[in-house]
Amino acid sequence: MAVMKMNCFLLFVAILLCIEVANANGVVRLNLNGSVDPSNTEGVIEVYYNNRWGSICYLDVFSMFYMYVPDVVCHQLGYTGGNIGSNSGVVNTSPVFGLVECSDSYLTLTQCSCNTDFSPNCTFADNLDITCYATRIWDNPYPGMVRLQGGNYTGQGIVQVYCNNEWAAVCNDGGLIEDETGWTICTQLGYNVYDVGTTSYTGKAWLDNVDCSSDDSDEDPPSCLSKCSGGKCPSSTFSCSTALNVTCAHGITFYPGGIKDACKFAHGLSGGAIAGIAVSGCLVGFIIGFIILCICCCKRRSSSAPVQGRSTERDNILNRRNTAINYSKV
């Protein structure tokens, strides 16, 4: 099934952009004792959601649900991961999310299962705070990896791509901007809403006039820039005057966005090879999941207390989250 048919949803997306991108829905930041400097690597998590900045109410009794939240928030901020806890004091930010459960492969917080219902007993002292690792995601890049630079947050800025051991811009000197290219870039970064334009630029570039559109109206744009026309790494850089500038955000979840390293093996591999990797990964995941399920079942037989488990599968996360909501309201 097609995730998004560009010919049918282009007007819808344009309207959605007016609502979401202008407010940067889904943007995260760390509040360290009242400072929200973009360079903060620790502090209380704040997310922009429904036209306001809010926190995540952390409940110790459901700590397993929050296991990968630090990793995902730090991924979104450009770091390799993180841990719960920081040197920040209490920050007076009201929550927008209660229980939040993520997979460690997610790149943005709103890809997670985020429950907007939270206990009325949540206080400012219950706000979830984290510390990100010092290492950046792009400290260990792969060919075809993309990032956005020079924007107000990590989901906004000039598009750069990593090729031949060097970061350089993606240009658009041809004048025509393909909307699908913006969609592909934001998808690769874990978002599902985009706005694409150009900005004056002087410097090195790897790619120019990348086209991620398809002649088949029922076919989705590629989820990796390297799979687009003109998206492969060339042998040398060139100079350009107009760089591609993209703003990514989260809107209605008709598509959740890409996951960590999903495009790592897409650069230069055939479709059959990628399919083989995916099938192997699914098989290993199934075996591991089966073992975990057996362990959980044994625990349930030996104890009458509810057991909080975790799964990287979104459907299982949603089902367990709904069960946890009932507990949290007690």
Rank of each mutant, 00 (worst) to 15 (best):
Ala266His: 01
Gly272Tyr: 02
His267Asn: 03
Tyr133Gly: 12
Val246Lys: 03
Cys171Arg: 04
Ser63Arg: 15
Asp195Tyr: 15
Leu17His: 11
Gly98Lys: 00
Ala2Pro: 15
Ile277Ser: 01
Asp60Asn: 13
Cys74Gly: 12
Asp208Pro: 12
Pro234Thr: 07
Arg300Phe: 11
Phe118Asp: 08
Ala134Ile: 10
Val47Ile: 06
Leu244Pro: 01
Gln308Phe: 07
Val330Trp: 03
Gly289Asn: 09
Ile177Ser: 00
Gln160Trp: 12
Leu148Thr: 11
Ser213Asp: 10
Gly98Ser: 01
Gly230Met: 08
Thr247Glu: 05
Val36Asn: 02
Gly230Ala: 08
Phe290Thr: 14
Gly157Cys: 06
Gly276Cys: 14
Val13Thr: 05
Gln160Glu: 15
Asn33Tyr: 05
Ile274Ala: 05
Arg314Trp: 13
Val100His: 00
Gly203Met: 14
Ala205Arg: 12
Ile274Gly: 03
Tyr48Lys: 05
Leu189Pro: 10
Arg320Asp: 09
Ser214Gly: 03
Tyr153Lys: 13
Tyr48Leu: 02
Asn192Met: 07
Arg314Ile: 13
Asp315Ser: 07
Leu17Glu: 08
Thr247Ser: 12
Ser270Pro: 04
Phe286Glu: 04
Ser103Asn: 10
Gly82Asn: 14
Ile325Leu: 11
Val91Met: 07
Arg320Phe: 02
Lys204Glu: 12
Ile277Pro: 00
Asp60Leu: 13
Tyr142Lys: 09
Gln76Leu: 11
Tyr79Asn: 14
Ser270Phe: 09
Thr108Arg: 02
Gly34Ile: 06
Ile15Tyr: 04
Asp129Trp: 10
Tyr49Gln: 01
Met1Asp: 09
Phe238Tyr: 14
Val28Ala: 04
Phe265Asp: 06
Arg300His: 12
Val69Gly: 04
Thr187Pro: 08
Cys263Ala: 02
Thr108Pro: 01
Asn140Lys: 13
Phe124Cys: 07
Met6Asn: 05
Gly272Val: 03
Phe9Trp: 03
Gly276Ala: 08
Glu178Val: 03
Val307Trp: 07
Ala14Val: 07
Glu313Asn: 15
Glu166Cys: 10
Arg320Leu: 05
Arg300Glu: 14
Tyr48Ser: 03
Asp71Trp: 01
Pro95Leu: 02
Pro38Thr: 03
Ile277Tyr: 01
Tyr68Gln: 09
Arg314Leu: 14
Ser239Tyr: 12
Thr41Trp: 15
Gly54His: 05
Gly276Pro: 07
Pro143Val: 11
Val28Lys: 02
Met4Ile: 11
Lys204Ala: 14
Asn192Phe: 05
His250Ala: 03
Gly309Pro: 04
Thr41Asn: 15
Asn322Pro: 00
Thr123Glu: 11
Pro306Ser: 03
Cys298Val: 10
Ser103Phe: 06
Ser88Met: 12
Gly197Glu: 06
Gly230Gln: 08
Cys233Asn: 04
